[in-house]
Amino acid sequence: MNFTITKVQLFVMLFFRTTGIIFIAYSEALLNAGGRDAWIMFFIAAAFVFLQLCVYEKCYKYFELGKITRWIYIFSWVILLILSLVYIQYTLNIWVLGNTPNYVTLLLMLLVSYYISVSRPSTAVNMPVFIIPFVFVFVFFLLFAVPELRVSQLFPIGKSSGHEWIMGMLYGLASFTGLEGYLVLRKYVLTEDKMRFKDILIYQTIITVFSGFLMLVVKMYFAPASLPYITEPTLYILKSIEVTFVKRLDIFFLYMWLGWSIISLSLIVFNIRIVYFQKERKHKKIPMVVLHLLIFFSSIAFLNIRSVEFLRAHFQYIYIPFTVILPAFIIWKNKRRETKCAK
């Protein structure tokens, strides 16, 4: 595929790819797994991710996918797409669309995704821009919950067990799932657009502040014992906020989250598209049709509480294999090959 992006577009895509879908729910999983110190674990994980991005920036040239690694990534992203759609549909069923047949909403979501996937790359690149204003609106309305927040909920610290630290760190890292997108997209950044350490720092600070804010609001709002019962704590908070102009703030933001999630899905599809079409292919649209049909039927097949709970219980394990180990292996292998060739 032939296209170029600016570094700002890269970071905007990465932001929405990372935060989309999970941002209404990840804090509950993280806080339950990490115990009292979970919020500290999140910020340590954010610092780790920053270092990881710096390493990515140094080594992205060596991130060349081979036949096997390409299909490993495509396979993992397809699984992620299916599970994400299952989660989105399940959440919609619970909150607003209890009677609407699943295939209708899934079809509509995938139709948008398909349209983006067969359009020019610039469509996928620029779609996240539509959501930017909503980020501020979302944060603004969450601030209405401030009178109910209790700083004392953050303390005491140092009470989490070793196991809680391991799980908390895994969930903390999983809040940044999709970071491998940086490696996939980095080589398309305009060469004259120099990437500096400061740019990565600003990006990581913004995403940490946003995700950290959501997590801290949940932590300070809910009693620790009540949190395991709540699946989407951020929506629950919005549901409890009283404003004069709209009866249910949560419904408004649920649709905003839906838009955000569809864009996140289309960015995963975009990653698949880039990786798949790295090799010259005869057909351009048929693979996308097949991909969307596969996602559609698989989502229908797996749409049940077991899949959703499986996803909630295991999504923290995605990060290390696909964002740390596999990229490290690919980079190490290509770097070694280059050194050997140079000799």
Binding site: P147, A223, P224, S226, Y229, Y236, S240
Partner: peptide
């Protein structure tokens, strides 16, 4: 200030 959500929070809080 209480409501349904705050009530649940307090019932579970120690």
């Amino acid at each position: 200030v209480t409501n349904l959500e705050i009530a649940a929070n307090k019932m579970f809080g120690e």
